[in-house]
Structure formats: structure tokens, C-alpha cells
């Protein structure tokens, strides 16, 4: 399965991902419409791009009272079914990473990263490779065992 990888050390704070995302989804270069946001740390000279992590057991999905959020298995993407959404903003308040957004002009409308249906423009336009959309190798048997062991400890 393909995944969106974030590497803050490669990010140069150029904001191209935000602009590309905004233009892809709203045909405007407005950072408020972007699904990806960068946060600059001047003390460490490091920029962290923040984007939906597509959690398997997503908090937005659990908090949605109308069950409008579901996992698109094919894409591995947590997706909003807008036909079911009632605009109560439970998901915006519920996402622990702050990657669900409320439309400021249309307060009942929420949006999140939809991986651009399989071709994320943020990763396509990222000049340094801080955002990469690539095939992830499945875990080896040993890694899987370590993971299961850790889970059983938790």
C-alpha cells in the first residue's frame, strides 16, 4: 500500500505543498483551504509539515455521530462522506492531531486530506522530498513479531 511519508528534516518551509493543496481543492491559492500546514520552529531551524495521518482507528471517525467518516480500504484513506455529514464539528474538536479543518467561510463544512484520490499534489510538488507518497514495503516477519510483542506488552 502507498503511504504519505513526512520527513521534517528535508522541509525548507517553502509552503509549496500548502499552495498546491489549496489550488487542487478550491482553485485558489489560499492557505486557509489547505489540508497540509507547515509549522516552523525558529529555535531548531526546523519546519514540520502537518497532514492527516490516516489513522486506522481514527478519533474523528469514532467521534462522528452520523458515521459519515469511513476508511477507504483501497486507498488507505480516512474519508468524509459529505452526504451523511451534519456539520456538528465533533470531528474537528475530536482529532487529537488537529488535522481536521473547519471551513471559515462556511462554518458547517469540514475538510481533511483525501490523498487527492491517490495522487497527493503536496508530495508531487514538494521540491525536496519532505513529503513523499510511495509504496511501503510490507513488514518483515521479524518486524511483525517485534510489533506484536510490543502490543502485547501494552
Amino acid at each position: 500500500m502507498k503511504m504519505l511519508l513526512i520527513n521534517p528534516r528535508k522541509c525548507t518551509n517553502c509552503h509549496i505543498c500548502e499552495l498546491a493543496c489549496s489550488f487542487k481543492h478550491s482553485n485558489e491559492f489560499t492557505l486557509a483551504h489547505s489540508r497540509v500546514r507547515t509549522i516552523f520552529h525558529p529555535d531548531a531551524n526546523l519546519t514540520v509539515p502537518e497532514i492527516c495521518l490516516q489513522c486506522i482507528d481514527a478519533a474523528c471517525m469514532a467521534s462522528c455521530p452520523s458515521r459519515a467518516i469511513f476508511v477507504d480500504e483501497e486507498l488507505g484513506c480516512v474519508t468524509i462522506n459529505y452526504d451523511k455529514c451534519v456539520g456538528c464539528l465533533s470531528c474537528v474538536a475530536g482529532c487529537p492531531f488537529g488535522n481536521m479543518f473547519q471551513d471559515e467561510l462556511n462554518p458547517g463544512h469540514v475538510f481533511k486530506c483525501d490523498l487527492c484520490q491517490g495522487d497527493p499534489v503536496c508530495a508531487r510538488f514538494c521540491p525536496t522530498g519532505a513529503l513523499l507518497y510511495k509504496e511501503i514495503e510490507p513488514l518483515t516477519g521479524k518486524q511483525q513479531m517485534v510489533l506484536e510483542k510490543e502490543e502485547s506488552v501494552v
Binding site: A44, E50, C95, N99
Partner: peptide, 23 residues
């Protein structure tokens, strides 16, 4: 305390964690 932070402040917390991890 689940709803104590807004989305912007939650992103800042995550970014701070990622900064510490990267360093």
C-alpha cells in the same frame, strides 16, 4: 481534558513532538 486545545494548538503540540524526535 480531551477538548482543551483547538486544532491549531494541537498541531503545534504534534510539531513540537516531531521536532524533539528529529533532534
Amino acid at each position: 481534558n480531551y477538548y482543551d486545545l483547538c486544532d491549531i494548538c494541537k498541531r503545534k503540540v504534534v510539531a513540537n513532538t516531531q521536532k524533539n524526535l528529529s533532534l
